[in-house]
């Protein structure tokens, strides 16, 4: 069946079996292998991408069901020549060991920072009516959909906190 999706700003027309997930369409049809297949069941978060600005597990999404949607993958976030601040922070803070979960961690973290900026609460937020402060505990809860088998969690949280601080500083300077 015909499916048209916009991936990292470029419209892509695909002819797919209805069974093809967004993850497999990205990796096998479009050659965008930055998005990783971990568990393939929505448990590990390695396949996290943004669809219309929101993070989802691309392994649990049929491409057919996302006809017309806008998709951002790790390739659309940064390049080796022009890294995204989270990519730089993961390098600086050593936020990985094997690196397999890293693209998913970074896609998830970018979405998480945007969600917090929009005022989304989490399960560990003390109140539901105030803008959340991204404490270490908040970052851990909000990133619980991304597993790291090497258990680099302390450094992953450090890297995310560094970008949080940089964005807060930019925001304060603008105010």
């Amino acid at each position: 069946m015909d499916v048209t999706i916009t991936v990292n700003g470029t419209e892509r027309k695909l002819e797919l079996d209805p069974r093809v997930t967004l993850l497999d369409a990205l990796r096998h049809e479009l050659g965008l292998t930055g998005t990783k297949k971990g568990c393939d069941h929505g448990q590990c978060g390695a396949c996290t991408i943004l669809v219309n600005g929101r993070r989802i597990n691309s392994c649990l999404a049929l491409a057919a069901s996302h006809d017309g949607d806008e998709i951002t993958t790790i390739e659309g976030l940064g390049t080796p020549e022009n890294m995204h601040p989270l990519q730089t922070a993961f390098v600086t803070h050593d936020g990985y060991q094997c690196g397999y979960c890293t693209p998913g961690q970074i896609m998830s973290a970018e979405a998480m920072l945007r969600e917090a900026a929009e005022g989304w609460p989490s399960y560990v937020s003390k109140t539901l009516d105030a803008d959340p402060t991204l404490t270490d505990e908040e970052i851990a809860e909000r990133m619980s959909g991304n597993l790291c088998r090497c258990s680099a969690y302390p450094r992953i949280r450090e890297a995310i906190a560094a970008v949080r601080d940089a964005r807060n500083a930019t925001k304060e300077a603008a105010e």
Binding site: G42, G45, T48, R54, R55, I56, N57, L60, A61, S108, A111, M112, E115, P121, S122, Y123, S125, L128, R142, S144, G145
Partner: peptide
């Protein structure tokens, strides 16, 4: 709100 936020992950709750 609290029940929903206690379930699954943000990635899953977005879908």
């Amino acid at each position: 709100s609290r029940a929903l936020l206690s379930g699954a992950t943000v990635q899953l709750r977005n879908k």
